[in-house]
Each structure stands twice: as C-alpha cells, then as structure tokens.
Amino acid sequence: MSAFIELRQVRKQYSRAGETLVVLDGLDLAIPQADFLALMGPSGSGKTTILNVVGALDQPDAGSVHVDGTDLTQLPSKRLPTWRAENVGFIFQSFNLMPVLTAYENVLLPLSLTPLSGKERRKQAEFALEVVGLQDRMDHRPNQLSGGQEQRVAIARAIATDPAVIIADEPTGDLDRETATQVMDLLVRLNEEMGKTILMVTHDPVVAERCRRTLHLDKGVLVEATEGSGA
C-alpha cells in the first residue's frame, strides 16, 4: 500500500518557561489511503501535534509532511487555510460547534468556502446531517442538543465538504460509553463506506480497538504499532 499521508523526520519542539520540550523527535510515519489510525500515548507524547501537522494547523520545525502528494511544509502559509478547507475535516473532543448557529448552519459553514451554489450547499448540508442521523435536529442550537448529538453534528460538519482526511482529536473523550459507541459506529462507516482516511487520538483502548491500526507514542517517537478490528 502506498502512503497517502507521509511524515518524514518530523521534529517539533515547544519552549515553555525557558524549558524546551521536544514533542516529535524525528518521526517517520506512513499512512495509506482509507486507513483508520488510532494514536495513543501519555500526555505530551506528541499525538495531538501529529494531528496538527497533518491537518496543517501547525508546521513542524524540521522534516516534511506529505498529504496526497502535497508537501505541506512547502506550501505558503497563506495557502494553508484553503488546503485545509479542501482536504481535511476536523472533529474535536469538545465538539467546537458555533454556539450561535443551528446544527444545519454549523454544517453549512465550511461549505461557504466551496465553489458550490447556494442550493448545492444546502443539499450537501442536509445530506451530511442525514448521514449522521440528525435531519430532524437541523434547527437546534448546540445548547439544545445532547453531547452525542453535538458530536454527530461536528462529524457532519467534518464530512460536509467531502474531504479525503478526517482528523479526530479524542472524539469520544467527553461522551459516555453508549454514545461513544454510536460515534465510533459512524466513524467506522465513514472509513469503510466513504473511504475516508481517519487519524484519531484516543486514550480509550476500547475505541482504539475499533480502528484498523493503533500507534503508541512516547516522548515523540513511535514505540509500538498494533492492529485493530477496524469494525
């Protein structure tokens, strides 16, 4: 399998209170298309930093990050937002929905960056909400939804523009077991049926077990890779 996402000798460090913290230390990582990868490890091991550099939210200090043939480290910073809009969907632990917008409007938001017509955008937003089973909650605000419903809206928003990559940072972290299972069912479906490449950070081994692969990190280096059920 050729690598759809490839990190080569990626190094990232932060300075905090005069102390330098190395979070990624020459990391090499290859992820094939339509993979569903779980990243696990203790706090500070570099899991979220991997998501950030793959999602072009942050740039590594050294090394290169290739996604679908594009070297993100070579893209001018002004082009990164457009690249994100076209290629990546984000799912966050705390959902990160716009509180002033309805579920439908939240899903519509990234679509406003696409060249689609207004009618096409509305159709696409409705379809995304249908995929996550929330077509009957379209006009609800985030504070009128349960945690699980909020995360499903966030998933709908992430897939609305049909990106190739979905980046999920502890998507089940704030959910109870039953709701977490429903969210994982949805992500597995996106991976299997829609062919989305998913990178997910989790602390939950039960959740990680449902991914195709799990990578364990510690102090910025890969320490172990395990196969999951992928279902």
């Binding site: 937002p81 457009t82 994100r84 984000f90 990160n96 990234p110 960056l113």
Partner: peptide, 14 residues
C-alpha cells in the same frame, strides 16, 4: 478566540 480557532481549522483565512 475559540470560535476563531474553529473558523481557521475549517479553512477560513486570517
């Protein structure tokens, strides 16, 4: 600030 982070993640430019 947080909403700005979300918008930037979604692909809205600075």
């Amino acid at each position: 600030i947080r909403e700005t982070g979300i918008l930037k993640a979604l692909g809205f430019s600075d």
